[in-house]
Simulated scan of single mutants.
Amino acid sequence: MIVLRAVQGGLAAFLQPATLALLRLAYPADRLGKPIAIRTSALAVAAGSGPLLGGVLVAHLGWRAVLWVNVPLAFVIAVLALAVWTPAPQRVNSPRLNLTSAGLLAVALAILVHALADIPARGVGRPRRRCSNSSPSSAPQPCLPGTNAAPHTRSFHQS
């Protein structure tokens, strides 16, 4: 169930750029501001009211009500979509996908995600430090986390 929920979240992430692409296809560039503003407002209202309404439904009707509320909503949206449907405009001279650029973008995004995922372990902007027991002439030794001592070293002080 958890894996399917993660897949659902990943696929839902494709909806954001897809709605913007549909708006760019449907409206000319000089009239694109208002449809994008309406879309963004609808997303803000949904993000704010969704958890509230979901909580009310679960509290009064049980968790299954959250799933069933989507059935009439999907039906209304399907009817409205069929009512306002227009044929797609003819494309002229559509550019082909540049595979080199797409590959470079994928590599750059993978590096960015890897770097961001590593922040909790390494921290942000902390320089690597020398341990107090490493001499200036020797190579710097890694310090144990939270200490100023190198691994596998012990210092015994006699008084």
Rank of each mutant, 00 (worst) to 15 (best):
R64G: 14
A115K: 15
P28D: 09
A115C: 12
A117C: 12
I119N: 05
G62M: 00
I77K: 03
T40Q: 11
A6I: 15
G55V: 06
L104F: 12
A149N: 09
L97S: 08
Q8Y: 14
A46M: 13
Q8M: 14
S41T: 02
T147D: 04
P127A: 04
L25P: 00
A37T: 02
P72I: 12
P17L: 10
C131A: 07
L105P: 00
D118R: 09
V84S: 14
G33N: 08
T147G: 00
C131W: 02
H114W: 15
A81I: 10
A18N: 01
L82M: 08
G146Y: 02
R39M: 12
I38V: 13
A21Q: 02
D118H: 08
P35S: 08
A42Q: 07
T40V: 10
F14C: 15
L109A: 15
G33F: 05
P89Q: 04
A139Y: 00
A46G: 15
L4V: 10
P142M: 01
P28G: 06
N93Q: 10
V45L: 14
L4T: 08
R130A: 07
W68K: 01
N98T: 08
Q141E: 08
A42R: 05
H114N: 14
V3R: 14
L97E: 07
R64V: 02
F156R: 13
V84D: 13
L61G: 00
P17E: 05
P89W: 03
P87Y: 01
G54R: 03
V66I: 13
N70L: 15
V3S: 11
A26Y: 01
V7R: 09
G125D: 02
P72N: 11
L97N: 04
Y27E: 01
A81D: 04
S159M: 07
A121R: 09
R122Y: 00
R128N: 00
L105T: 05
V56Y: 11
N98K: 08
A110P: 06
T153S: 12
N148K: 01
S94L: 13
V71M: 13
L22D: 01
L97G: 02
A117F: 11
I36K: 05
A150D: 04
I38P: 03
S41C: 03
G10P: 04
L43N: 15
G62R: 01
A150C: 13
V113Q: 12
A65L: 03
A26F: 00
L32C: 09
H60T: 11
A115Y: 14
A65E: 00
K34F: 11
V3T: 13
I36V: 08
G123P: 00
P136G: 05
A65K: 04
S132I: 07
S132D: 06
Q8T: 14
A18S: 07
A121V: 11
S134F: 01
V58W: 10
H157D: 12
S138D: 06
P151L: 02
F156V: 15
L104D: 05
V79T: 09
L32S: 03
R130N: 02
A42I: 06
A81V: 11
A106Q: 01
V45T: 10
V3L: 15
L52S: 09
G123V: 00
V107T: 10
N98M: 02
L57G: 06
P35I: 03
I77G: 06
P136M: 10
L53H: 06
L109P: 06
